[in-house]
Design a protein around this nucleic acid. Structure first.
Length: 254
DNA sequence: GTTGAGCGTT
């Protein structure tokens, strides 16, 4: 039983869904199974993943067959350290279709008569699908979702700061890399190859220098770091020299 | 290689 959520929702009519938050991004359904299975009969475990990257979002849904077992798991597994991180287990408040559920159990099935109740759903079913291609072309003022908000949070400060001090014409990579709206997720393989050979020389130059610059600053006394330099240079006699770069350029050139 | 509020797929 290692295939959870791969075949889609089996049957959530008589199952109780538990929401597991604060789990690691590397935790899989199989990892959570032994934890929840010990406290009750786990019907299915599903971990929402990103459509583009495929990485876990950091939370999972565990469905129990009985409410008493689910409650037990919430009380026992809530605050339990899994994979080195404390997880949060609680009853799901919303169903797979954004419908309100009671105690993790769906209060209303999607029958013909349920359509009338659906008018009350204040929540949208869409989350990441429409945002991925609409948010960038439309306007970012709509409010960034958790996916983009996370990435922008770390890149935003650097991104804006550089724009002020440095001109865009100075960084041709700006249009291909950050200008697209996002920098990774689903980038083309060919773009990456060219970046390594074409636009690399300009960026790789400062990269090598940083090894020597900070090293000297941290050792104003001198004399001591001499031993380290000698040993570290041995494994790298050549290859890091920029003089070899032109040689590769002609090979890469068509 | 990174991140951390929240509510889900065939």
């Amino acid at each position: 039983m290692s295939h959870f959520g791969r075949t889609g929702p089996p049957d959530i009519t008589d199952t109780y869904s538990l929401l597991v938050l604060n789990i690691t991004f590397r935790t899989t359904a199989d990892d959570l199974f032994p934890y929840f299975d010990k406290y009750g009969k786990v019907v299915d475990i599903f971990i929402p993943r990103n459509r583009r990257t495929g990485d876990s979002r950091g939370f999972a849904f565990v469905r129990y067959k009985y409410a008493d077992e689910a409650q037990k798991a919430v009380d026992r597994l809530d605050g339990k350290v899994v994979d080195g991180r404390e997880i949060t287990v609680q009853f799901a408040k919303y169903g797979p279709n954004a419908e309100r559920i009671d105690k993790g159990r769906i209060s209303e099935s999607f029958s013909k008569s349920s359509y009338r109740s659906r008018s009350r759903s204040p929540r949208r079913r869409y989350r990441d699908d429409y945002r991925d291609r609409d948010y960038k072309r439309r306007s970012r003022s709509r409010s960034l979702d958790r996916y983009d908000r996370d990435r922008y949070r770390g890149r935003d400060r650097d991104y804006r700061r550089r724009s002020r001090s440095r001109s865009r014409s100075d960084s041709p990579d700006y249009y291909r890399g950050r200008g697209r709206g996002r920098y990774d997720d689903e980038r083309r393989g060919q773009s990456r190859s060219r970046s390594m050979d074409s636009a690399s020389p300009a960026r790789r130059s400062p990269t090598h220098r940083r090894s020597a610059s900070p090293h000297r600053s941290l050792s104003p006394r001198g004399g001591s770091p001499d031993r380290h330099s000698g040993d570290r240079r041995s494994p790298t006699p050549h290859g890091v020299s920029p003089a070899d770069r032109p040689a590769d350029s002609r090979s890469q050139s068509p």
